[in-house]
Write a protein that binds this DNA or RNA. Structure first.
Lengths: 233, 233
DNA sequence: ACCACTATTTGACCGGAATCAACAAACCGG
DNA sequence: CCGGTTTGTTGATTCCGGTCAAATAGTGGT
């Protein structure tokens, strides 16, 4: 974990918490902000560590995850460039990270000082509102995750995930999986073997083609039906 | 769903969003607040309904839940008196309820106008901070739920739930399940049959006694071990 | 380009938990 | 307090998806 070139103002503007600040608040946040880079596989923080910083991903990719006693890993979120994370720790009674974080690719980050951010927010209701919006959206995503874990079987979760990605990227003929199949399996709480079999089944059903990490949706309608539970015909 | 007696100021003070307001903000929030009561089984709102109100439970008990296509129900949260809910909808781009809500017992509620609350928050950073704290805590709870669904099997979830309740209530010899076994099963994403069998197993292991809805923890240490995955010996 | 390690796929097998069924107990509204 | 409905328990059976194993493909680093 090494220090690196300083973040530019333009980059920081993409950080929702600071996007409205030209003024003293931004200066203060910037002053103690620290550019950090991590290698592939390196751990940025561990669950339970004191959360002194809030993070913004500039480049690369990271995973937020939890581990079971047996060492099984559940990925809570995959962090891509432009995404900030760990904001919710700011307002927790015990300010610790609730998950582990490790880099899937070599990554550059900005770490903002938690106390400074709270200070900046104290007299900036607009920034508070932006943060409330961010957290609300995340909360909604978590509820969706809970639903899909509780109410959908493995193949449905896979089909749903692919359909979401397909739509999120504007329904292109072809799109790339955002991470390795192993990690996506971890995100969907499925074993890699099962994920592989799900993809095979969707191919055989004629819904899509898979070429390594590239997915080609050949029949969006069939994919939708698979996501609703009718992966036959 | 009928109107009822007006909420008192003291009751409203228990609402975290308003607890700091003696002033105009509280008056405004109170003005359009509406007391509502629902019968057992009645639906307060459905997933996707426009979220014009934020709710505070005064008496009774409600469930927040999602439904699968097949009609299976996953309970996201059980709402007891004093708890508010649906705050996160305030800051969503599309302001709709993300879950269904129905009463488990006859219940009295206060419904606050969403627009009014946003107005009150606009110039009250302290209230914003309280709300941020509330949402952060809920987020953390959701992450815990995701972990337990993804990384723990049915019996572990049950043991964990019981241990949590036991501790939450101050480790009393005896405590009451907060709802019917059917609903707790729904909260833990387990079939009622499986929940019943888990309780039987914990009894046979000598960890606790069950008398209808009353749980007596006879061996807390054993319960802890069961929650960690060693339900033998 | 080469090597070691990691990721992916496929097959065989097994076990946990859902489902189906039948009954017993508890509860609620009148 | 009664009757009907909902809730809870227990047994039998099924099957989804995890685990183990082994072979292959892919990747990053030097």
């Amino acid at each position: 974990m090494n220090d690196r070139r300083e973040p530019t103002i333009e980059e920081l503007r993409r950080f929702p918490l600071l996007s409205g600040l030209d003024e003293p608040g931004a200066a203060r946040a910037l002053a103690k902000a620290r550019a950090v880079s991590v290698e592939r596989g390196e751990t940025l923080f561990r669950q339970g560590d004191p959360a002194r910083r809030i993070w913004l991903c500039r480049t690369g990719q990271l995973k937020l995850y939890r581990l079971s006693d047996a060492g099984q890993e559940k990925i809570i979120a995959i962090i891509n460039p432009g995404r900030s994370f760990a904001e919710a720790t700011l307002f927790m009674p015990r300010r610790v990270y609730p998950v582990h974080c490790a880099a899937l690719k070599p990554s550059e980050l900005v770490g903002f000082d938690a106390d400074d951010l709270v200070e900046s927010l104290r007299d900036d209701p607009a920034a508070c509102f932006r943060l409330l919006g961010t957290l609300s959206m995340r909360m909604h995503e978590k509820i969706d995750q809970i639903e899909s874990l509780a109410l959908q079987n493995a193949h449905l979760r896979v089909a749903h995930y692919l359909l979401d990605e397909y739509r999120k990227q504007g329904e292109p003929e072809t799109f790339r999986l955002e991470a390795s199949k192993k990690h996506i399996a971890g995100l969907l709480a499925v074993q890699p073997e099962t994920f592989s079999r799900s993809l095979t089944a969707l191919q055989r059903a004629g819904a899509l083609d898979v070429d390594a990490r590239v997915i080609t949706v050949t029949d969006a309608h069939r994919l939708e039906r698979a996501a609703r539970g009718a992966l036959d015909s």
